[in-house]
Design a protein around this nucleic acid. Structure first.
Length: 580
DNA sequence: GCCGTTTTCGGCCCGACTGTTTTCAGTCG
């Protein structure tokens, strides 16, 4: 059976084409065009086959006539003549060399043409025998770097991206430590961490400091006990590898250049390119150091990010949506929406107590919620079927209601504790409590924890059955993914989201850093199909209630506004909004 | 190969660092 052709398949193909064209020595702008098309295909939430049928492939940014034609050929014939011709000229197996650090298109072409090297094994052999250094531009240093790179590759030290939560904890340590250091004026995480991407490839830290202190700051950074090795170190830029494998980059700039530096270092790359193009149209050149007037060659320094955007004639853009897509034009027109903010969140609609697998009493959880400024919370201990998490029998659940009633009297309405449950959706799509019990809960949260690998069709029906149940208000952590443990469930998400939109069932954005579920892309897809959302922490301990900002960032990356998030409303409007 | 309130042709971001050089190419972000 032929493998399914979807946007990711096409994106991977165009990325491979880009590398092969690069090795061939093609026009770099053409190479870049394939990369941009690939990137935008990965972002696309609409179904590619549908777009093809409707003749709308060129609606995808970066996809013009030529690439649309190639997609069409693949969908119709299952193959691409252009690719066959290309790989007859530049063998596909050369792509494996591209994974080796220090090996770019020029060096791959050289070792292939001069030494017949077309595999990592042959490259390793040549490096070990010292024959690589005979090539122009190669020497002993590069040879050994390549060997180290191959080692890292074999030990799988290069491949992984890290969940945002891990990078976040690390960044706190570094920012706090460097912030105390003499001479440091500003310090901030940048890069994909500041943009709050779901996973980060490296950790970027930016420091503003006076010139004479930079050496000491670099040393303080590289001397941190969490640093494994220094990869490179110059006067303004240092790269290290943390214990555990994550790479970290430190950049130091003068305080007067903080704005352009923070903007540049936050990215994304595509966003930066767009900004620099806008600058050029205004006869300005933008770099991390300054805006430069191209006519008189004078620098315009920006000490804040807001100034950078202002001088380009745009409104400031939140880091979470800096992807070089529609945010650019909207900011130029001053039409960016106000995205949902942590301060908008009034209630937290999933948390656990010692009644099931939580670590704190309901009272402790409620006090923390009140301290965080919430006005309502929903207690969602597990239902009976999830024995592993101490699921509650119906009797125990009813006992819990007495405790909640008492606590509500104590809180006198300053915080309202709602009665809920995280009700298990059984393999056949039925719920783990009978309707008579569900009816007596304030809010019902349904969740799938087991058998997520069942047949795609059955799983989809199971989701839809749960979503369509008239007593279910919220579907918790819909895709079931757990970073590093479990992938998103394989189901027909378009059908599931349509069912949620039509029944009015709210989709949870689970803020826990191990989940961040729904993904950014699925939020956008669900939003476009008419769904509404809640953002919940799924806290099992008091400090985990602080993770709300992770979920809010996820929502912001998907462009959600306050009105799209049901728990960003006061209790009264929230209760009016939930169906029944 | 894509794209367009300065263009349907002629542009396409900008810099750090390293190793190999004798002024710069290659890789990386």
């Amino acid at each position: 059976m032929r493998r399914e052709i979807d946007a990711d398949f096409l994106a991977n193909l165009f990325d491979r084409i880009a590398i092969l064209l690069e090795i061939k020595g093609e026009n770099p702008f053409k190479v870049n065009a394939y990369r941009r098309a690939a990137e935008n295909l990965r972002r696309e939430t609409r179904d590619i086959v549908e777009l093809y049928k409707e003749g709308k492939l060129t609606e995808i940014p970066g996809v013009g006539k030529a690439i649309a034609q190639k997609i069409t050929e693949i969908l119709e014939n299952g193959k691409l003549e252009f690719y066959d011709k290309l790989t007859a000229e530049i063998p596909e197996r050369l792509l494996s060399l591209y994974e080796v650090p220090e090996m770019g298109p020029k060096r791959i072409k050289l070792v292939w043409e001069k030494l017949g090297i077309d595999s990592v094994e042959k490259l390793e052999k040549a490096a070990l025998e010292g024959t690589l250094r005979s090539l122009p531009g190669f020497g002993p240093k590069i040879e050994s770097k390549i060997l180290e790179g191959i080692m890292a590759l074999k030990e799988r030290r290069l491949v992984s991206r890290y969940p945002l939560g891990e990078g976040w904890d690390l960044s706190r340590i570094i920012v706090n430590r460097l912030g105390e250091f003499e001479g440091v004026v500003f310090v901030s995480p940048a890069g994909s961490l500041r943009r709050m991407k779901e996973t980060i490839g490296d950790l970027d830290i930016l420091v503003a400091a006076e010139n004479d202190t930079t050496n000491k700051i670099i040393k303080a950074f590289t001397d941190l006990e969490i640093v494994e090795e220094v990869l490179l170190s110059g006067p303004t830029k240092t790269s290290i590898r943390f214990k555990g494998g994550l790479q970290g980059d430190l950049r130091i700039v003068e305080p007067s250049r903080w704005g352009t530096a923070l903007q540049y270092f936050t990215g994304s790359q595509q966003h930066n390119i767009s900004l620099r193009e806008i600058a050029l149209k205004k006869n300005l050149s933008l770099s991390e150091y300054a805006l430069t007037d191209k006519i008189n060659n004078k620098e315009i320094l920006c000490s804040s990010e807001e100034e950078v955007y202002e001088k380009l004639g745009m409104s400031w853009i939140p880091p979470e949506i800096r992807e070089g897509t529609i945010e650019i034009n909207l900011a130029l027109e001053g039409k960016l929406p106000r995205l949902v903010e942590v301060g908008d969140i009034e209630g937290d609609l999933q948390m656990h107590s010692t009644w099931s697998d939580g670590k704190r009493s309901i009272k402790e959880m409620a006090e923390k919620a009140y301290a965080l400024g919430r006005s309502y919370i929903l207690i969602t201990d597990h239902s009976q079927g999830l024995g592993i998490a101490g699921g509650l029998s119906i009797e125990r659940l009813m006992d819990q209601w007495h405790e909640i009633d008492e606590l509500n009297e104590i809180f006198e309405g300053k915080l309202v504790i709602l009665k809920g449950a995280e009700v298990e959706v059984r393999t056949d799509g039925t719920l783990d409590y009978p309707d008579e019990v569900l009816e007596r809960l304030d809010v019902v949260v349904a969740a799938l924890h087991s058998n997520l690998r069942q047949d795609r069709g059955q799983l989809t029906e199971r989701y839809i059955k749960a979503i369509s149940h008239p007593l279910v208000h919220i579907l918790a952590h819909p895709s079931g993914r757990l970073f590093g443990v479990r992938e998103e469930a394989n189901a027909d998400w378009e059908r599931i989201f349509k069912a949620a939109a039509s029944s009015g069932t709210l989709l949870e954005i689970n803020a826990h850093p191990s989940r961040l579920d729904l993904s950014e892309k699925k939020i956008r897809q669900a939003f476009n199909l008419g769904c509404k959302f809640v953002i919940s922490t799924d806290a099992h301990d008091i400090h985990e209630q602080e993770y709300m900002f992770f979920g809010v960032a996820q929502a912001r990356r998907a462009w959600l506004k306050r009105s799209d998030v049901a728990n960003a409303q006061p209790l009264k409007s929230f209760l009016e909004q939930i169906k029944r």
